[in-house]
Amino acid sequence: MTSEQRQFARHLRKHGTKAEDVLWQALRGRRLDDLKFRRQAPVLTYTVGFLCAERKLVVEIDGKQHDWYSEYDQHRTREIEAQGLLVIRATNAEVLTDLDVVLNRVRDAASPFSRLGE
């Protein structure tokens, strides 16, 4: 990781959205099924919201700006998934109003049985 990437990730962690902070409180310190997540982690040339390297899982939270950048997000997701990672997305509203549903989606995606058909 370059020093620019490191500084960018640090900036994102310090200036996270309310939804990112809420989800981080639920994921940090192995609070969800003893899974280790990192926040604002580098993957390729991108910085992803949350990464569980052990389960090859990326969790992204989409705010309003993602409506404008959906084509870019789709391209980014394809590149990340080409590296063998699974990307799941939730909106800010989902995290803030239905955190349990989001956590269950993360739990399901992280399950060692979730990708048996691949």
Rank of each mutant, 00 (worst) to 15 (best):
S3V: 11
E4P: 00
E4I: 00
Q5V: 07
Q7R: 15
A9D: 11
A9N: 08
A9C: 10
H11A: 10
L12Q: 14
H15F: 08
H15E: 05
G16D: 08
G16C: 13
K18S: 09
K18F: 08
A19I: 08
A19V: 10
E20T: 04
D21C: 14
D21M: 11
V22G: 02
V22K: 14
L23Q: 08
W24G: 10
W24A: 12
R31V: 00
L32V: 08
L35Y: 05
R39K: 14
Q40H: 15
A41V: 07
P42M: 03
T45D: 03
T45I: 00
T47M: 06
L51E: 13
C52W: 08
K56Y: 10
V58C: 03
D62L: 06
D62Y: 04
K64M: 05
K64C: 03
Q65M: 02
H66V: 03
H66M: 05
W68G: 01
Y69A: 03
Y72H: 10
D73S: 01
H75P: 00
H75R: 13
H75E: 04
T77N: 00
T77H: 01
Q83M: 14
L86G: 00
V87G: 11
A90G: 08
A90I: 08
T91H: 09
T91D: 07
N92R: 06
L96A: 09
L96E: 15
D98H: 15
L99F: 11
L103N: 09
V106T: 12
R107T: 11
D108R: 14
A109R: 01
S111C: 13
R115I: 01
